[in-house]
Design a protein around this nucleic acid. Structure first.
Length: 106
DNA sequence: GACTTGACTAGAC
DNA sequence: AGTCTAGCCAAGT
């Protein structure tokens, strides 16, 4: 199980209409400081991974080196009902609150 | 195994 | 509030 596949597993759990931050995903994996690695994993992910539901700590859409997919991300989020405030996701309202005691043990 | 890169962050200025 | 700097982590060379 690579770190990346673990990342995908978590992202797939993000409910439609909600979002999570890179740091949040990292924390759920027990690697609170690996937000950067999470971003790297998102660079290329399976089609069934709702990558658009992952944003940076400020609720903003991080820039890719190339591709302007960040535009697609914003649109997809809005279509799911996630509202933005001044170009940034309204985290206080749409940030995902993952259930605890999951991840295998209780 | 060292070195580089990147969709990150938090803290200084 | 906008920029810069320094940690942090996994992957690919």
């Amino acid at each position: 199980m690579t770190f990346r596949s673990a990342v995908y597993a978590v992202v797939r759990r993000i409910p439609r209409g909600e979002v999570a931050t890179y740091g949040q995903v990292a924390a759920l994996l027990g690697r609170a400081r690996a937000a950067r690695a999470v971003g790297g994993a998102m660079g290329s992910c399976p089609a069934d991974v709702p990558w658009h539901r992952v944003v940076n700590a400020q609720g903003g859409i991080s820039r890719r080196r190339r591709d302007s997919g960040m535009l697609t991300q914003r649109i997809r989020l809005e279509q799911e009902g996630v509202r933005l405030r001044r170009g940034k996701v309204w985290l206080a309202r749409f940030q995902w609150e993952p259930p605890r005691g999951r991840r295998g043990r209780s």
